[in-house]
Design a binder for these strands. Sequence first.
DNA 1: GCGACAG
DNA 2: ATCTTGTCGC
Length: 276
Amino acid sequence: MDGGEASNESSSRNQLENRTEEQDELKKKLIEYDDFTWKLSSSMEPPQGSEMLKYVGGVDMSFSKEDSSVACACLVVLELPSLRVVHHEFSLLRLHVPYVPGFLAFREAPVLLQILQKMRDDKHPFYPQVLMVDGNGILHPRGFGLACHLGVLAQLPTIGVGKNLHHVDGLNQSEVRRSLQLKENEHEQVITLVGNSGFTWGVGFRPTLSSIKPIYISVGHRISLESAVEIVKMTCKYRVPEPIRQADIKSRAYLQKHQTEPSKRIWTATTGQTEP
DNA sequence: GCGACAG
DNA sequence: ATCTTGTCGC
């Protein structure tokens, strides 16, 4: 036996170093421009023969208040322009990876990826053309948040949507709100998030007139910031865009239904096993 | 050194 | 993430 605490500290430090390396490695595959064949349905004259954007996915996770390691992951697919939910899928599981700011993907990406892969393997007709993620894209300390991580691994266009600002490169939410206040008279609902370094990390977006608190949109994978904002605008009935809002509602409801009755068959992300 | 820090 | 009711306003 050795000094337990010191060794735990050094091993968790190594763990984060490894995860940082993994993020840096995956980031080499990141594509930050429009890399898809479909067109946005908001375009004027849909050119004949070109595929339209019709199926927008959204992912979110909810957690049990009694046992915070028990979670429900949900993927929904909405149809444009109706915003009707045409498909949803759940996964109830137990997580062993803690939440660490800057490393959310290591906690949430495995299950979400598993759900996406299942849908793709089934050749499901509603497999999403683009995916909205409840977490940031390049708006991240190392420019590689959950939305990027998931996008690269699933090879799918993704959009990062944060409900709170991750403070990076001098950005802070009170300043964003001030900027939106100043521009509200010009009907301006979008503020570009430029950090101290001059880099554009994403945009702050006020979806409705009444909402004070903006959401934060950033590039995930295979999409430009401009297209990402356009798609978010098309799906915003309330502050949170519908794909994410529906995934949130459904995952929360599923969890409450299943935490009342003794939870059986919880899938464990790390082992891929089912526990009684 | 101290605080900040997506979900 | 989660704990939580009513309430002010269109």
